[in-house]
Computed example of a mutant assay.
Amino acid sequence: MSHARVRTAALDGWAGLLADKSSTAMSLPSPAYRRDPVPSGNPMPTAANSMPLVDFVRFSEDVVRQTRDVAIPWLAGVHYDLASLGPIGTAINSAGKVGTALRRMVDYFALLQDCTDIRLEREDDMASVSYRILDPDIWPRHHDAMFSLGIIGQIIRRGTRGAWEKVEFAFEAESHEMRGDIGKVLRASCTFGADSNQIRFPAQMLDLALPPTQGPQADLRQLSNEMVAQRRNTSLVERLAQVVYRDLNTQGIEQERIAREIGMSSRTMRRKLAEEGSSFQQVLDECRMRQAVFEFRTRPDLSIAQIALRLGYAEHSNFTRAFHRWSGASPQAWRANLASTAH
């Protein structure tokens, strides 16, 4: 996951918002990343049209830290030109309803950014879109979330014609970590310390019509083919790790279920993992340990036993032994050292 990438098109629109902040000497990342014209063909991230996700996230954090303006990432998302996303933007812009546009955004998001869990869900009379970077080494990532939810908010606003009643937000970060009054910026109710970043809204908004747009129609079959090609070109270890990170804290990590989701039998998955020099247990153990460090960093109020439970251990003593084998230190010692270096 250290190689997670995002399309450099994500940088579009930020320069104008930073123009009035010249005293901070804030600028976009290296021009080496700006080789990405508006894409019109293959939308898959490549070395020429993408940048490390960690660099983009760091950039969004630096923007707020240096400008002291927490609204910039949100505004960058709300006013983002979806045409910059090429065929994916076309698919979103040509959708007739809010729900269709959001579904296309979610379905093809992996072509824009790696190692991310993004979901559109509906429960009773409320709908939600949640967004979370899966790589536990990328933190803080508070304002990347503001930017991404801003794009989603833009789509919803198109259907509501600007109405914003009953929309709610949740963020992974604690309120004091986001450097400003987020509720005031969003003009909505916000909660913090959640497991994912989320925008919730009345489900009836999914059926709202979007204003018609001029331009080409979406080639959804081509986008689906690109998704298949991307999965084929991603190692099984990487695909498995993303599912494990996605499901930790939410449901049991079952080998049979995950194999079916990936599209193979558990026997075939074990064989292919062995061909890559790994195993299901090795991937699971590595994900758990890296996620444990993430939990230490982001949830200092949780006990070791609570963290062990979140990681799927029935007994926290099993977690303690596994963590010691992985790191050479106990979870308590690691957490204490992390806290001391943070101050």
Rank of each mutant, 00 (worst) to 15 (best):
Arg5Gln: 10
Ala10Gly: 04
Asp12His: 12
Asp20His: 12
Lys21Met: 08
Ser23Thr: 09
Ser23Ile: 09
Ala25Pro: 03
Met26Pro: 03
Ser27Trp: 07
Leu28Ala: 00
Ser30Lys: 06
Ala32Gln: 08
Arg34Gln: 12
Asp36Ala: 14
Ser40Arg: 15
Met44Ile: 13
Asn49Ala: 00
Asn49Trp: 05
Pro52Phe: 01
Leu53Tyr: 02
Asp55Leu: 07
Phe56Gln: 01
Arg58Tyr: 03
Phe59Asp: 02
Gln66Trp: 13
Gln66Ile: 09
Ala71Leu: 09
Leu82Ile: 05
Ala83Ile: 09
Leu85Pro: 05
Gly89Met: 08
Thr90Glu: 13
Ile92His: 06
Asn93Lys: 14
Lys97Glu: 15
Val98Gln: 09
Gly99His: 07
Gly99Ser: 08
Thr100Leu: 10
Arg103Cys: 06
Asp107Arg: 15
Asp107Phe: 10
Tyr108His: 14
Thr116Val: 04
Asp125Phe: 08
Ile133Lys: 05
Asp137Val: 00
Trp139Arg: 13
Arg141Met: 06
Ala145Asn: 06
Met146Ala: 02
Gly150Thr: 05
Gly150Lys: 12
Ile156Met: 13
Gly159Met: 08
Ala163Val: 09
Trp164His: 12
Arg179Pro: 04
Gly180Arg: 10
Ile182Met: 12
Thr191His: 07
Phe192Tyr: 15
Gly193His: 10
Ala194Gly: 01
Ala194Ile: 00
Gln198Lys: 13
Leu210Asp: 04
Pro216Phe: 08
Gln217Tyr: 05
Asp219Glu: 10
Asp219Val: 00
Leu220Gly: 05
Gln222Cys: 04
Ser224Pro: 04
Glu226Ile: 01
Val228Cys: 05
Ala229Glu: 15
Arg231Phe: 02
Asn233Glu: 15
Leu236Ser: 01
Glu238Leu: 10
Ala241Leu: 04
Val244Asn: 03
Arg257Cys: 03
Ala259Met: 06
Arg260His: 08
Met264Glu: 09
Ser266Phe: 11
Arg267Asp: 06
Arg270Glu: 13
Arg271Gly: 08
Lys272Met: 11
Lys272Ile: 02
Asp285Leu: 04
Asp285Thr: 06
Arg290Glu: 12
Arg290Pro: 00
Ala292Pro: 04
Thr298Tyr: 01
Asp301Cys: 03
Asp301Val: 01
Ser303Pro: 04
Ser303Asn: 06
Ile307Cys: 02
Arg310Gly: 13
Leu311Phe: 10
Gly312Lys: 08
Tyr313His: 07
Glu315Trp: 14
Glu315Ile: 06
Asn318Ala: 13
Arg321Ser: 12
Arg321Asn: 07
Ala336Arg: 11
